[in-house]
Design a protein around this nucleic acid. Structure first.
Length: 157
DNA sequence: GCCAACGTTGGC
DNA sequence: GCCAACGTTGGC
Protein backbone atom coordinates (compact mmCIF):
# COMPACT_ATOMS: atom_id res chain seq x y z
CA UNK A 1 0.00 0.00 0.00
CA UNK A 2 1.39 3.31 -1.05
CA UNK A 3 0.38 6.92 -0.56
CA UNK A 4 0.19 9.69 -3.14
CA UNK A 5 -0.74 13.31 -3.66
CA UNK A 6 -2.59 14.35 -6.84
CA UNK A 7 -3.01 17.98 -7.80
CA UNK A 8 -6.09 19.38 -9.45
CA UNK A 9 -7.42 22.82 -10.22
CA UNK A 10 -10.80 22.89 -8.50
CA UNK A 11 -12.21 25.19 -11.18
CA UNK A 12 -11.74 22.23 -13.52
CA UNK A 13 -12.28 19.32 -11.12
CA UNK A 14 -12.60 19.48 -7.33
CA UNK A 15 -13.14 17.12 -4.42
CA UNK A 16 -16.81 18.17 -4.56
CA UNK A 17 -16.99 17.13 -8.20
CA UNK A 18 -15.52 13.75 -7.30
CA UNK A 19 -18.04 13.35 -4.49
CA UNK A 20 -20.88 14.14 -6.90
CA UNK A 21 -19.84 11.66 -9.60
CA UNK A 22 -21.85 8.48 -10.18
CA UNK A 23 -20.15 5.84 -8.00
CA UNK A 24 -17.98 8.73 -6.75
CA UNK A 25 -15.36 7.53 -9.22
CA UNK A 26 -13.44 9.44 -11.90
CA UNK A 27 -10.64 8.69 -14.36
CA UNK A 28 -7.66 10.87 -13.47
CA UNK A 29 -6.69 11.93 -16.97
CA UNK A 30 -4.79 14.72 -18.63
CA UNK A 31 -1.48 14.16 -16.83
CA UNK A 32 1.13 15.25 -19.38
CA UNK A 33 4.39 15.13 -17.50
CA UNK A 34 6.74 12.17 -17.87
CA UNK A 35 7.71 11.81 -14.24
CA UNK A 36 4.07 11.89 -13.16
CA UNK A 37 3.22 9.52 -16.02
CA UNK A 38 5.75 7.02 -14.79
CA UNK A 39 4.14 6.98 -11.36
CA UNK A 40 0.67 6.47 -12.85
CA UNK A 41 1.83 3.76 -15.24
CA UNK A 42 4.25 1.85 -13.06
CA UNK A 43 3.66 2.45 -9.39
CA UNK A 44 0.20 3.66 -8.44
CA UNK A 45 -1.68 0.50 -7.43
CA UNK A 46 -5.21 -0.59 -6.61
CA UNK A 47 -6.28 0.53 -3.11
CA UNK A 48 -3.45 3.03 -2.72
CA UNK A 49 -4.58 6.20 -0.97
CA UNK A 50 -4.39 9.67 -2.46
CA UNK A 51 -4.47 13.19 -1.04
CA UNK A 52 -6.51 15.41 -3.34
CA UNK A 53 -4.77 18.78 -3.56
CA UNK A 54 -6.39 21.94 -4.90
CA UNK A 55 -3.97 24.20 -6.79
CA UNK A 56 -4.27 27.59 -8.51
CA UNK A 57 -7.28 28.71 -6.50
CA UNK A 58 -8.35 30.81 -3.53
CA UNK A 59 -7.53 28.23 -0.91
CA UNK A 60 -4.57 26.17 -2.00
CA UNK A 61 -4.12 22.91 -0.09
CA UNK A 62 -5.27 19.36 0.58
CA UNK A 63 -9.03 18.96 0.34
CA UNK A 64 -9.59 15.28 1.04
CA UNK A 65 -8.73 11.66 0.37
CA UNK A 66 -9.44 9.26 -2.48
CA UNK A 67 -8.42 5.68 -3.13
CA UNK A 68 -7.27 4.04 -6.34
CA UNK A 69 -10.10 2.07 -7.94
CA UNK A 70 -8.14 1.07 -11.04
CA UNK A 71 -4.38 1.01 -11.62
CA UNK A 72 -2.69 2.57 -14.64
CA UNK A 73 -4.17 2.15 -18.12
CA UNK A 74 -3.91 4.25 -21.29
CA UNK A 75 -5.41 7.74 -21.11
CA UNK A 76 -7.73 7.67 -24.12
CA UNK A 77 -7.95 11.45 -24.29
CA UNK A 78 -4.51 11.47 -25.94
CA UNK A 79 -6.06 9.88 -29.07
CA UNK A 80 -9.14 12.13 -29.20
CA UNK A 81 -8.58 15.09 -31.55
CA UNK A 82 -11.49 16.85 -29.84
CA UNK A 83 -9.87 16.62 -26.43
CA UNK A 84 -7.77 19.36 -24.88
CA UNK A 85 -5.35 16.58 -23.96
CA UNK A 86 -4.97 15.26 -27.53
CA UNK A 87 -1.39 14.29 -28.33
CA UNK A 88 -0.84 13.80 -32.08
CA UNK A 89 2.53 12.18 -31.46
CA UNK A 90 1.18 9.36 -29.34
CA UNK A 91 0.57 6.06 -31.11
CA UNK A 92 -2.35 3.78 -30.16
CA UNK A 93 -0.15 0.69 -30.03
CA UNK A 94 2.35 2.53 -27.85
CA UNK A 95 0.42 4.97 -25.66
CA UNK A 96 2.47 7.77 -24.21
CA UNK A 97 0.06 8.82 -21.42
CA UNK A 98 -1.66 6.87 -18.66
CA UNK A 99 -4.41 7.45 -16.17
CA UNK A 100 -5.87 5.75 -13.10
CA UNK A 101 -9.36 5.78 -11.61
CA UNK A 102 -9.89 7.40 -8.23
CA UNK A 103 -12.71 6.77 -5.76
CA UNK A 104 -13.87 9.39 -3.26
CA UNK A 105 -13.16 8.54 0.36
CA UNK A 106 -13.21 11.65 2.53
CA UNK A 107 -13.60 15.40 2.32
CA UNK A 108 -11.93 17.33 5.11
CA UNK A 109 -14.16 19.83 6.92
CA UNK A 110 -11.43 22.40 6.34
CA UNK A 111 -8.73 22.65 3.67
CA UNK A 112 -5.27 21.81 4.98
CA UNK A 113 -3.58 24.80 3.44
CA UNK A 114 -0.20 24.85 1.74
CA UNK A 115 0.77 27.57 4.18
CA UNK A 116 0.02 25.27 7.11
CA UNK A 117 1.75 22.28 5.50
CA UNK A 118 4.92 24.31 4.99
CA UNK A 119 5.08 24.94 8.72
CA UNK A 120 4.65 21.30 9.75
CA UNK A 121 7.92 19.97 11.18
CA UNK A 122 7.17 16.44 9.91
CA UNK A 123 7.07 17.59 6.29
CA UNK A 124 10.60 17.45 5.00
CA UNK A 125 10.77 15.52 1.76
CA UNK A 126 7.37 16.01 0.16
CA UNK A 127 8.08 17.44 -3.31
CA UNK A 128 5.14 19.80 -2.85
CA UNK A 129 7.08 22.01 -0.46
CA UNK A 130 10.32 22.05 -2.43
CA UNK A 131 11.06 25.26 -4.21
CA UNK A 132 9.75 25.40 -7.73
CA UNK A 133 8.26 21.92 -7.74
CA UNK A 134 5.83 21.22 -10.57
CA UNK A 135 4.99 17.58 -10.10
CA UNK A 136 1.26 16.86 -10.29
CA UNK A 137 1.49 13.26 -9.06
CA UNK A 138 3.89 12.60 -6.20
CA UNK A 139 4.55 9.93 -3.60
CA UNK A 140 3.93 10.64 0.09
CA UNK A 141 5.81 8.61 2.69
CA UNK A 142 3.87 6.99 5.52
CA UNK A 143 5.16 9.33 8.19
CA UNK A 144 4.20 12.41 6.21
CA UNK A 145 0.86 10.89 5.23
CA UNK A 146 -0.04 10.26 8.85
CA UNK A 147 0.99 13.76 9.89
CA UNK A 148 -0.97 15.39 7.05
CA UNK A 149 -4.13 13.38 7.58
CA UNK A 150 -4.17 13.86 11.32
CA UNK A 151 -3.56 17.60 10.93
CA UNK A 152 -6.32 17.81 8.33
CA UNK A 153 -8.82 16.11 10.66
CA UNK A 154 -7.94 18.33 13.64
CA UNK A 155 -9.63 21.66 14.23
CA UNK A 156 -7.33 24.63 13.53
CA UNK A 157 -7.59 28.33 12.98
C1' DG B 1 -1.93 39.30 -13.94
C1' DC B 2 2.92 38.68 -12.67
C1' DC B 3 6.83 36.12 -12.93
C1' DA B 4 10.21 32.52 -11.25
C1' DA B 5 11.07 27.92 -11.94
C1' DC B 6 10.89 24.28 -14.61
C1' DG B 7 10.12 20.85 -18.67
C1' DT B 8 10.12 20.29 -23.60
C1' DT B 9 11.42 21.22 -28.25
C1' DG B 10 14.25 21.63 -32.07
C1' DG B 11 18.24 23.58 -34.65
C1' DC B 12 22.83 22.78 -34.94
C1' DG C 1 24.25 15.97 -27.04
C1' DC C 2 24.06 20.92 -26.19
C1' DC C 3 21.44 24.71 -25.09
C1' DA C 4 18.49 28.76 -26.30
C1' DA C 5 13.85 29.61 -26.98
C1' DC C 6 9.56 28.69 -25.77
C1' DG C 7 5.45 27.10 -23.18
C1' DT C 8 3.50 25.77 -18.77
C1' DT C 9 2.90 25.56 -13.84
C1' DG C 10 1.39 27.49 -9.82
C1' DG C 11 1.89 30.58 -5.73
C1' DC C 12 1.11 35.05 -4.76
Amino acid sequence: MAYWLFKTEPAAFSIDDLMARPNQTEPWDGVRNYQARNFLRDEVAMDDEVLIYHSSCNEVGVAGIATIARAGYPDYSQFDPESAYFDPKSEPDNPRWYRVDVLFKEKFSQILTLKFIKKMPEIEQLPLVKKGHRLSVMPVCEKEWNALVSAARSPRD
